[in-house]
Every structure is written in C-alpha cells, then in structure tokens.
C-alpha cells in the first residue's frame, strides 16, 4: 500500500469558500471543507483539509487546478 501525503500551504490558500477548485475537481473527494479549532459555527472561517488521503488516486488534478499553487502531493 502506497502512502500518500497531501499538504496545503495555508499562507497561499486564503479564500477556500470562494475558490473551491480542488474540492470540485477531485473525483474521490479527498478534500473536505471543514471547521478549524477556533471558529466552529461560522463556515466563513472553515478551511479545506485533505481528510481522506487513503482514497487519493494520485491524478494530480488538484495540483494543476489550484490557482495559488498551494497543494503538494507526495507519493511514497
């Protein structure tokens, strides 16, 4: 089983709710728009987190489509 690591650079990914490029393009839905620890009930402060790297097929579509080039996929 290959281990896949997906990193998102949050200094570049600033407006996830308006962009949504990666969550729309990903076929197995690896990314989830979810809460951060500080603000739970306000979706405006939510972040995109790669929560299911096990389902990633390594197609690199998210890397190519990210307008800020904030995503990095590592396949070991």
């Amino acid at each position: 089983m290959k281990k896949i690591k997906i990193n998102i650079d949050y200094s570049k990914c600033i407006t996830p709710e308006n962009c949504r490029a990666c969550i729309n393009i990903c076929q197995p839905v690896v990314f989830v728009l979810t809460f951060t620890d500080e603000d739970y009930h306000d979706p405006k402060n939510w972040k995109i987190v790669p929560i299911f790297p096990i389902l990633c097929i390594g197609c690199n579509l998210c890397v190519e489509n990210c307008p800020e080039k904030a995503i990095n996929v590592l396949i070991k």
Partner: peptide, 8 residues
C-alpha cells in the same frame, strides 16, 4: 454534507 464535500 454537500457543503462540506463540494462547497455548494
């Protein structure tokens, strides 16, 4: 669910 997974 759809908001979480697709942002819509």
């Amino acid at each position: 669910c759809r908001y979480m997974h697709r942002g819509i």
